[in-house]
Amino acid sequence: MNKKINSGRVKVQQIVVGILVYSFLVLFGIFVLIPFYWMILTSIKDINQIRTEIPPSLIISFKQIKFWENYSAAWVAAPYWKYMLNTVTVAAISTIGTVVTTIFASFAFARLNFKGRDILFLALISTMMIPGEMFVITNYITVANLGWYNDSQTYVQALLALTMPFMTSVFYIFFLRQTFKQIPDELYLAAKVDGTSDWKYLWRIMVPMASPTIITITILNAMGTWSAYIWPKLVTTKDEYRLVTNGLREAYSELAGQVMYNQQMAAALIVTTPLLITFLFLRKYIMRGVSRSGIKG
């Protein structure tokens, strides 16, 4: 009897908490979503509607939609196929490189005990405290000295220049180190007792357990390539070696007069689609919790 009342109260409480949680998520969800919604809306509006409408409407009637006009105009504004192919190639190389070097370095920082570890780690973190633009010119000179930048630059040289500086990342080493640190020490000690080597332990236990983080790093790194702009423009000598954001910016850098915002947003959405698909595909791997029982043995 008593227990029944209790469970009833728990249920009510659960429903109330549920409503609160969902309201909170919906509220912030809307706040977060406004600009993306704006982007879609702008991409299907007529340019005159965008320019003259005060205030801008948040809803658009079916009749007013200029989907085909804007998207077809946006698509031909730059050779996006070529740019996307380049971007996918660069993203794949630099992401694989980053993930591998990051896993190794994070393992050393999280699990191994070596002389000067903490100082070195601090030194790594402190490199993030210098504005990135201070690195650009020196790296450009380095790339030129390595022979990857010249008037007769080949595609391979361009790829080297585009990827080599981004084959590792302090930001992600720090991130993965923290994830590795979340994995209880007992597991490592137990593995040691069983005579498992560090190498095996890293690949059989730590990497699978940290897979949500590794997937996250993969997505974030790929996105970094997607939005890269200054470096690709600086180190490529031909238009056809450049990346999507270069194409986007250059197709819409209006020298006089106004920008075609609708086509620009349409183009932005076109080049974003592969990223969104990648995210939707990998999303479930981020949310797949790893329970310890699953990886025993």
Binding site: A77, A78, P79, D151, S152, D239, A251, S253, L255
Partner: peptide
């Protein structure tokens, strides 16, 4: 003779 020409007129323009 190979010469390079840097300008500001992007794709489409």
């Amino acid at each position: 003779i190979n010469i390079t020409f840097w300008h500001v007129y992007g794709a489409g323009k």
